[in-house]
């Protein structure tokens, strides 16, 4: 597997000249490429545009012209979804779930990533192999045994702890940290050790400040996991006061799906509230979602 290093990250950020044609041909040949990219962008963005527009119309018009409303904007749908599911409580639950998962992932991931990258200890190879193996086991396949353990054996149904536990570790975050720690020069660590610094001290005061971008990337990548997660919190929370927004919105969708007049306006207003934080974070921090960071996560 080809390795992508941090150096190549900068390559991705810079506007690279086309590799296939000499410069004088660029202007003549670049328009099909731009058209292709623009059609792609339209297909990717249109559902989001439509979601927002329909959520702002009291009675969304499904006709083709209705996709481009010029008047009748209202926030009624947001009030209506707030009456059906407790938006504030759901958002708080999503926040607690997501925040705790990020905290566990970053703390456990930093320690494990540092150990795997910089320390020689017995079982390091085994641990790394186990992490690679875990990545190919789809989480959903563990649904039944985890449900049995957490809900039936430990009685953690309808609790934040039960919701958080299966997500507390994340191989992607460990891979990102390991990758970044490995890129730091060896001299830095031997110098600190000669000066008598303990490993915890080295990690905290020397290595951590240098891998701050990796921490940000790991936080951003981890955020979208629990914030968007549906299956697991859906399985273990029956109490509406504990459900994250993804679950309460899904329950609302499936409870009204059978009815003739679907209140799509309210559903789409809820969808906008659910999608907005992740999209906003991504747009603001988009340059931290680079291919090499994600690549190092999935490739090891």
């Amino acid at each position: 597997m080809a390795q992508v290093t941090a150096d190549e990250r900068s390559v991705l950020e810079e506007p690279a000249p086309p590799a296939t044609a000499p410069p004088q041909k660029v202007s003549g040949r670049s328009w099909p490429r731009t058209v292709l990219l623009a059609i792609g962008a339209l297909l990717f963005l249109f559902p989001f545009y439509y979601m927002l527009m329909a959520s702002l119309q009291l009675k969304p018009d499904t006709s083709v012209r209705g996709a481009f409303p010029t008047s009748g904007f209202t926030l009624d749908n947001y009030r209506s979804i707030n009456g059906r599911v407790n938006l504030v409580q759901s958002l708080v639950n999503s926040g607690i779930f997501t925040g705790a998962v990020i905290l566990c992932t970053v703390v456990l991931g930093l320690l494990a990533g540092y150990a795997l990258a910089r320390l020689h200890f017995r079982g390091r190879g085994t641990l790394f192999a186990a992490m690679l193996l875990v990545q190919v086991i789809p989480f959903q396949l563990l649904m039944i045994p985890l449900y049995v353990m957490i809900v039936r054996s430990y009685g953690l149904a309808d609790s934040y702890l039960g919701m958080i536990a299966p997500f507390a570790i994340n191989a992607t975050a460990v891979f990102i940290f390991r990758q970044f720690f490995m890129q730091l020069p060896d001299d830095l660590f031997s110098a600190a050790r000669i000066d008598g610094a303990g490993e915890l001290r080295i990690l905290w005061s020397i290595a951590l400040p240098l891998v701050r971008p990796a921490v940000l990337t790991a936080v951003l990548l981890t955020f979208i996991g629990p914030w968007n997660e549906f299956l697991w919190p859906f399985l273990i929370t029956k109490d509406a006061d504990l459900q994250p927004l993804a679950v309460s919105l899904a329950n609302y969708i499936s409870s009204v799906a059978g009815r003739a007049a679907n209140p799509y306006g309210a559903i789409l207003a809820g969808a906008c509230v659910l999608a907005a934080p992740a999209v906003a974070l991504f747009v603001v921090f988009q340059k931290h979602f680079t291919a090499s960071d994600i690549g190092s996560g999935v490739k090891g």
């Binding site: 979208i224 968007n228 559903i267 969808a271």
Partner: peptide, 12 residues
Amino acid sequence: ISASVAVVAVWL
């Protein structure tokens, strides 16, 4: 990066 539940809603 968007939640499945949110984008499923608009596809529905």
